[in-house]
Simulated assay, not measured.
Amino acid sequence: MLRKAKNVRSECIRPFFHEGKNVVIRWEFQFEWLDGSITEIEEMAYQIWKEDKIHKEQFFYDPKQFIPKKRDV
């Protein structure tokens, strides 16, 4: 997927939440595709940590966000 993108921007939206070994992080991504269109998505990442590494991770998002939009010039 990244090969189809000219540029990808990501930002962690604070605060992130953690309770013991469970972590939830909200992300915003902007993909600028080779054809000039853009896709902006918001994602929630749920992680379970074991020691100092991610043991399990699951992502949640609205799939309708993946529809590219033409860029305003």
Rank of each mutant, 00 (worst) to 15 (best):
H55M: 03
F17D: 10
D72H: 00
E51R: 09
E42S: 09
W49Q: 00
V8R: 02
D72I: 08
I67M: 03
K69M: 13
D62I: 12
R3F: 04
K6N: 02
L34C: 02
Q47Y: 01
I38W: 07
K70T: 08
E51P: 02
E40G: 12
Q47C: 08
C12W: 07
P63K: 03
K70C: 07
S37E: 11
V23W: 12
E11I: 05
C12I: 15
H55K: 10
W49E: 01
F16C: 13
E19H: 15
I67A: 01
L34N: 05
S37I: 05
Q65I: 02
W27D: 05
K6V: 01
D62E: 12
N22M: 10
D52L: 09
F31N: 04
C12R: 15
I54G: 07
I41S: 02
F66L: 07
L2V: 13
C12G: 11
F17K: 15
K50S: 14
I13G: 08
F66Q: 00
I48E: 07
S10I: 07
M44G: 03
M44L: 13
R14G: 13
Y46R: 09
A5F: 07
E28F: 04
E11S: 14
T39E: 01
K69L: 10
R9S: 04
A45I: 14
C12T: 14
H18E: 07
Y61K: 15
K64Q: 08
V23F: 12
W27Y: 10
D62R: 15
W27M: 05
A5E: 10
K6L: 03
V8L: 06
E40S: 14
L2G: 07
F16M: 11
Q30D: 00
Y61S: 09
E43F: 04
F29T: 00
E28V: 14
C12N: 04
K21Y: 04
I41Y: 00
V23S: 08
W33M: 14
I41D: 04
R71M: 04
F16G: 07
D62K: 15
V73G: 09
F29Y: 10
E57A: 08
Q65H: 03
S37H: 09
G36F: 09
E19V: 14
I38Y: 05
V23T: 12
K70A: 10
T39Q: 00
R26M: 02
F31A: 05
L2M: 14
N22E: 11
D35Q: 09
I54C: 12
F31M: 08
E28M: 12
Q30P: 00
H55Q: 06
F59D: 02
E32W: 03
R26I: 03
E51L: 03
M1W: 06
I54F: 11
T39N: 01
I13R: 15
N7M: 06
E43A: 02
K56V: 01
T39C: 04
G36H: 12
D52S: 04
R3H: 08
I25K: 06
E40F: 02
I38D: 06
K56R: 15
Q65W: 03
V8P: 10
W27I: 02
E32D: 13
K21H: 08
D52P: 01
R3I: 00
K64G: 02
V73K: 14
I48S: 00
